[in-house]
Nucleic acid binder design. Sequence first.
DNA 1: TCAATAAATGTTATATTATAACATTACATT
DNA 2: AATGTAATGTTATAATATAACATTTATTGA
Lengths: 137, 137
Amino acid sequence: MCLVRGVQLTPIRQQVLVLIWDSHKAVKAYDLLDRIKPQQNAAKPATIYRALDFLIEQGLIHRAGSLNAFIGCSCSDHQHELLLLICKHCNEVEERATPDVMQALSQEFNQAGFTAHSKAIEAHGICGKCSDFHSIS
Amino acid sequence: MCLVRGVQLTPIRQQVLVLIWDSHKAVKAYDLLDRIKPQQNAAKPATIYRALDFLIEQGLIHRAGSLNAFIGCSCSDHQHELLLLICKHCNEVEERATPDVMQALSQEFNQAGFTAHSKAIEAHGICGKCSDFHSIS
DNA sequence: TCAATAAATGTTATATTATAACATTACATT
DNA sequence: AATGTAATGTTATAATATAACATTTATTGA
């Protein structure tokens, strides 16, 4: 994908991307910094934030504003405007493409005369797995 | 409203709320800290963050996660799950109640088996006023 | 090819945002 | 008055993020 776009997925950027995809939880920048140290001994905050900026620009990850954390984008090649379902219990983040919601949103933008460049929806609550577990036990 | 709920809108909390409502832009915590100093000489970060926590709990303000900033909630008495339209040009934030979007969202939660406790939608772009201005000039 | 340019990274420092932990005060209830 | 609770004061520090400038690496174009 990066090849096609003529941008470089350098080792640092790739390592950060892999670390983010290592779990389905939102990851903090400084956790990434700690975890990239074995491979990038000289890594500093700027190292991470630059990689994050790049990955966000390319639509490969999202910033979860409500958490000050980052999460891989599972639909990078098509639209990556999506809904993040953040579980308070297991901390996993589910991403969903939401055509209906997005269409309703677009209408709202039109009504408001607003030109949207980016949009983000974040919901906090309890995911299916965790509520199943609780109701069983 | 706070009376009805049996919670205290103390001077500090009220002053913070007023300061937030002083503009329709999202306000940073440390700006609030500076601006409350004339009235609350002893104010420290904790002073502000405690007031902000209270106001968020009561649904009187929102945290705009994508900005690390805070904005008054114009619909505190009914549902305060809403859409924030953040203008990159004038920095004003318009809030809109969005029944259609919220309904589509609820369906999405059902499908995902997700129990939502809170939801936030933030859009970045250019507001009507600013795009009018640009197209005229 | 090689100089010029641009892109990425290294490095140091610091700015910004937020919370922890414990002390004190204010006020209500018994 | 004693007790409890909510709010605030106070000090310190943690966590998140960027600025600014130097150096290295990749790309381009003569």
